[in-house]
Design a protein around this nucleic acid. Structure first.
Lengths: 330, 330
DNA sequence: CTGTTAGCGCCTTCAT
DNA sequence: ATGAAGGCGCTAACAG
């Protein structure tokens, strides 16, 4: 591998001059510049970015840590982050902590391989985050609350989302509305459940303990719950699922067992992932502003990087998307 | 930011000793190791990964360049790459060249910020790739042919895929089968079209020029083509679309205009993206082994990194997935 | 087992 | 406009 030294030698100039030329500084005469560039081409010179980053103590890139790079939820979020990063002349690299493998995340967060980081992965511990957040290393966490001088929190309004979903069902005449939960230790899950409870309470309905059904966050979990519900023979008239994937699993189970949606059971999901509009029946769901979330997160990183001290907590609105999986109860 | 020097000083040892301790080398006594680790904790020391990478001339991570990190096609591919990378103790970082922004890709490919790279993005030019491929910097390109000593090619069997799709339609009694194309300069598109032609020829059918319909690779393109076809009033009985997204766009247009699928028109897609099973009617399509593709690509990178010289070209099988968007012609 | 030291490749101040 | 030189933070010979 040719280094800048080789280029300088071949061009017959000093290293510093070569560096200037290569970075198109105006401090170098067009003539020498051309000589240097020629030499570089001849040697197929490629700059070592690591050396440059080390020297300058910055990478001009920000990192995005997801729990699963390929999940359906992330598409729009990524686009939001990407757009803003690009407009600031920064690059974006993403990694996942799939199966709890935090190795790469660790490299992002603890080893200065990026200038700032956005985290949407619960396998990254609060402790790890706190250890690294500094004025010159801003961290934005999505969907978790983590009070810290240099950590910013962005989340959707899960409570209102849960409330809207349940309210819609209530307004449609349903009274037996169950909640299909995600994992117990999830904040999202709790918040959505809170919204659900609030709506019920407003109507003076007290949910039975078994109305809160333990599920999970996956389609498979939803499928299992769906089957179980039918086999137990005690179908409610409406179901609010912690997210769309679960809802889709339930729909599939119901479909196989001859339960009609929405005629027998109305279903509402959460997230408004792309697939939700394509399933049959199309899924009524709570929309999160995923694209805006990505944009905001990235904006915050750059503000902090520029020395501003932005507000630390942000809640993005959610709204109900009416489709065909819910219907007025007759 | 504390450096290893600070840690060494606080622990009262030399930097090298600190380095050994921090990297849990056996050359250091448990006692000193503890001292060093304590000092590190006290200073909240965080290693500078860039310095380490520069010194060792390796990053232990490989890069994945996609044209759009958030496309529906990539999920499984990413998982395949990720799994293999992980099993080799390497990290994986991904970037996208969305809107032709090759800045980050450039950092991956030309600036040694990763140890090897997998490219599935046509905005990266062959020239750029050739410039960087070396024995110690393996590059795997997906869906393009690029003969080069240190570049490996992996692709799906697009021709057979196109053939199978068309053959299925033919076997179902269709004779007026049109092709909805992607962009003209796309190799995938050409290959799938070739398969289509081959199947027609076998049956002695000569396609009219207007059977090859210019579309694009997106849902919107498909939607436009769908509308156009109906407005022109000359519907074929079957359609083979360059990919699933286009097919879904067509389905949507047909649905809105009252054209029944598959009764009026049978439709076959390509890729078997996740959504294709959820649309109504579910989409008959050609499956690509996306997960295996990711695995293979990663494997090749690691083989090359270990000094092996793997075969340069790989074609992965495709197969037809029968669903409800096609039917026997009556 | 521990300390000294030479770079990895680059950028940039300071002289000239 | 160009050159010499220091140093970013780390690892790994080498010497003791």
């Amino acid at each position: 591998m040719a280094t800048i030294k080789d280029v300088a030698k071949l061009a017959g100039v000093a290293v510093s001059t070569a560096s200037y030329a290569l970075n198109s500084s105006s401090k170098v005469s067009p003539d020498t510049a051309r000589k240097v560039l020629d030499a570089a081409k001849q040697l197929n010179y490629q700059k070592n970015g690591l050396a440059r980053d080390l020297k300058l103590s910055k990478t001009d890139t920000i990192g995005l840590i997801l729990s699963n790079m390929s999940g359906p939820f992330y598409s729009e979020l990524i686009n939001g982050v990407q757009e803003v990063s690009m407009s600031h002349g920064y690059g974006l690299i993403a990694c996942s902590s799939l199966n709890g493998d935090t190795k790469m995340a660790h490299k992002f967060i603890q080893e200065r391989r990026v200038d700032g980081v956005i985290i949407l992965a619960h396998s990254i511990t609060d402790e790890m985050i706190i250890q690294s957040a500094r004025r010159d290393f801003p961290i934005v966490v999505l969907d978790r609350v983590l009070p810290h001088e240099h950590v910013m929190n962005v989340a959707s309004d899960n409570v209102t989302g849960g409330y809207l979903a349940t309210k819609h069902l209530l307004d449609s005449g349903h009274t037996d509305i169950r909640y299909v939960a995600g994992s117990a230790n999830s904040r999202d899950n709790d918040l959505r459940f809170q919204g659900y409870l609030k709506a019920l309470q407003e109507k003076g309905i007290t949910p039975l303990p078994n109305w809160n059904i333990q599920g999970g966050f996956t389609k498979e979990a939803g499928y299992r719950v769906g089957k179980l519900l039918v086999m137990q023979g005690q179908l409610p008239t409406a179901l609010f699922c912690v997210n769309d994937e679960v809802a889709i699993g339930v729909i599939q189970a119901f479909d196989e067992l001859g339960v009609r949606i929405p005629d027998d059971v109305s279903i509402v999901g959460f997230d408004n992932i792309e697939i939700s509009q394509y399933v049959t029946p199309s899924l009524t769901t709570v929309n999160q502003s995923k694209y805006e979330m990505g944009q905001l997160a990235a904006h915050l990183v750059f503000q902090a990087l520029q020395g501003d001290v932005p507000k630390k907590e942000y809640i993005l609105p959610t709204n109900l998307v009416l489709r065909k999986s819910t219907v007025e109860k007759r």
